[in-house]
Simulated assay, not measured.
Amino acid sequence: MNIESEIREAIDALRDTTANTQELYREACALLFFRYGITPTANKLYQFVRKGSMSAPAEALARFWEELREKSRVRIEHPDLPDPLKAAAGELVGRLWNDAQAAAHENLSAFRQEADARVAAADAATRRVKHDWQAANDELEHLHEAIDQASERNLSLERAVAAERAEKEALARELSAARQLHQAHEAELSMARKDFASELEKLRDALRRAEDRYEATEKRALLEIDHERTATAKVQKELAQLRQANVDLIQRQRDELGALQRELGGVRQAFGAAEGSLNKMNEVAGQHIAQIDAMRGQLSQRTTEVALLRRELELRDEKIRTMAQQMLPAPEPGDARPSAKPKARKREPSSPVAVAGAVTTTPPPKAR
């Protein structure tokens, strides 16, 4: 607490006990001069008291100084002493009083300075403590804010870690599902490869059997066509064309089989295109089988035509023999020699049904 606050508190206490304005100002003058060593002025008095007009503190201050001067004079009342001596003695006692009062004021000033220094030191210490307390409080608030920020950051990190953990678990589940799906696709691809290899082997066997049957049929047809060369030139030409077409078809089938094998190698790289390629190969194989069936029908038809032509030739030969026998002269009577009959050429009986049955083949199994 500073001096002005103490003075104001003391004057407030005097205000409660003194109702007269002049008395209040006179007590305020004595308080300032004797207790605090402050020379009172009209402005200071009015600043602390703030009562009445501006002339009131001036009058109280003049009266205070007059009373103080009156009290500082010492009167010596003795009938035996002359007046000059009384005045000199009064002057001496007044000077002693002033000196004592000055010494007292000096001591009081020293004491007041020491007290002021202690108060200033206490105030400084108090200010330092308040400053340290404020700094500590600010630091504590900063620490609280840092702790709150750290807590929020920790919560956000925990949320981020939880989200990353959940995302990692979801990715792990997706990876596991993808691995299972990949294994299932690998199994399906392996089964598709096995099925395709089996179907391809069956198709090759069917083609080999068809070639063998075709070669056997061709040999039989050539043996029969050798006997009917003049009558079956057109048939031979058609058979040659058919043979060439069959050779071209077989070559195309081999090329397509090579393409299918290359496509099978491509299936290992792209499983998604395997099913489409397999369907396409099945369609091509179906077309090949349909073409082989059509060729088989054409071959059976040509064989039937050959058999019919051969039958027509036999009927023609029979007719020729019959006409030759009719054109022979009649035998003379008495001629014991039997009539010479032309010896007919013996041919192997053949029927269109037998020939057609020779080239009838069992159709290969349809590709899946």
Rank of each mutant, 00 (worst) to 15 (best):
L24K: 01
C29F: 04
G37T: 03
G37N: 11
I38R: 05
A42F: 01
G52C: 06
S55C: 00
P57V: 07
E59A: 15
A60D: 02
P79K: 07
K86A: 13
A88W: 14
A89V: 11
E91P: 00
L96I: 15
R112C: 08
D116T: 10
V119R: 09
A122Y: 06
T126H: 11
A135I: 05
L140D: 08
Q149P: 00
R153E: 13
N154W: 05
A178W: 04
K194Q: 15
S198G: 05
L200N: 04
K202L: 08
D212L: 09
Y214T: 06
Y214H: 11
A216W: 00
K219W: 07
K219P: 00
A221N: 03
L222R: 12
E228G: 00
T232H: 04
R243T: 10
A245K: 08
V247P: 00
G276K: 09
L278T: 10
H288C: 06
Q291H: 08
A294C: 01
R296C: 07
G297D: 15
L299Y: 02
T304P: 00
V306T: 08
E312H: 07
L313S: 07
E314N: 01
Q326W: 07
L328Q: 15
A330Q: 06
A340L: 06
K341L: 11
P349Q: 04
S351I: 04
A354K: 12
A358Y: 11
P365C: 00
P365N: 03
